[in-house]
Write a protein that binds this DNA or RNA. Structure first.
Lengths: 218, 218
DNA sequence: CTAAATTTTTAGATATGTCTAAATCTTTTT
DNA sequence: AAAAAGATTTAGACATATCTAAAAATTTAG
């Protein structure tokens, strides 16, 4: 049996490896989970024993096929539950993360499958993130972060890559959500901040915000 | 913070005290939870420290107002989730217990309230058991167990008091569910088994089955 | 290419919740 | 009312998952 803590470690390792390449470091995991490097070290040994990760001391870690499958399944559950919370229980997209973090650990294949059917097999969650299928496939989209666009380009917001309330609340305040049309007006080289136009409004946002907005160009 | 194990103990204590009076014994709790009397003893001390139960060594235990409130809340969540699973995810009434045992521990007031609204404030769960309201009120019904009815009486099944798959599957096989009209034909004094008529079918069931069927007489 | 800085691991504790076996208290039986 | 039976508690372990502090390995910098 896989425990709740183990599931969280696997999910963290998968998250990190999706945004970087090569082995995942102990410190990166500690940062992601919010625990000490010592605890991570301990846990990596346990995950190794269970054949969920490949781990060499001081050399970082990577998921085995089995570990990847568990991690993907947790992400699938998380995103399906977020979809349910927003679509059916009328939660705001900034309010669902913490509850979904709990719901993702409910153990029942049948439940996940039926929830998926109830939601009519959604492909993306309320943040525009792809929902892995039952077989673990994650659809990719040809989107790029807003901060990588060149000046004068038009596009549409397809997703956000940060699921934290302060960030999502700020986007709501800026009138930005999934589907919003955005034109990149100007990039300031000094601090990488950018000017954008949404509707008839000109706004200025930091690079930290822009890098978490996934854009599909027109 | 109240832990998952503590919630289960409180729920068990409430369940037992609803079906008996006076203090709840260590052994009864051990039986309900499926653990040893020693573990129960340990846990009762912790619950006492948290002011969730009143406990005197060797003298049994009872819930404080605070403990009762937590326990009722867990039962509320359990029954709301069972309702969701049956009504919306098309689970059979015998399949929902184990999943609901997990879902009942999800921590979010907001989630429970919104689920309640989504389900349109149901008063009874799929087994006919009353769902406590947000303020902890549990509606009572004037039903009696089938084995307490007198011969010749007609009535309708309003609920079952056992949420276990083998029992519920057997009822399904007997064509008995919530709403079924039943006439008690004969009580056998030897083993307290009874003959009943449902629709045009005569059937014979044991006292163990009959005592878990709640009947409202016509 | 050594020395300092950083990262990672080990060692030793702590908290939770469980267990078995033994001791103690309570209830029942004779 | 003493002995036996039953229920409950204590004592001592164990597993999980965490922590801090110290040690060891690796990486970076001069």
């Amino acid at each position: 049996m896989i425990t709740l803590a183990e599931e969280n470690y696997l999910k963290a390792i998968l998250s990190i490896s999706l945004n970087s390449d090569g082995k995942v470091s102990t410190n990166a995991i500690a940062g992601e989970i919010g625990t000490s490097a010592a605890s991570v070290s301990d846990m990596l040994k346990k995950l190794q024993d269970k054949k969920l990760v490949k781990y060499k001391k001081y050399k970082g870690v990577s998921l085995t096929k089995k570990g990847n499958s568990f991690a993907t399944s947790v992400i699938r559950k998380h995103r399906l539950w977020e979809t349910f919370l927003v679509n059916n229980l009328n939660f705001d997209w900034g309010e669902v993360h913490d509850v979904a973090e709990q719901l993702e650990h409910i153990k029942s294949e049948e439940l996940v499958d039926r929830l998926d059917a109830f939601l009519d097999y959604p492909k993306f969650d309320p943040h525009g993130e792809p929902i892995p299928t039952k077989d673990g496939e994650i659809s990719t989209t040809n989107t790029i972060p807003l901060n990588k666009l060149s000046e004068g380009t038009n596009g549409k917001v397809m997703g956000v890559t940060l699921d934290e309330k302060p960030f999502l609340d700020y986007l709501t305040k800026l009138n930005i959500s999934i589907g919003t049309e955005i034109k990149l007006l100007e990039k300031i080289s000094f601090d990488q901040s950018i000017s954008i136009k949404t509707g008839n409004t000109k706004q200025h946002i930091s690079n930290d915000v822009a890098k978490h907005l996934l854009i599909k160009t027109n």
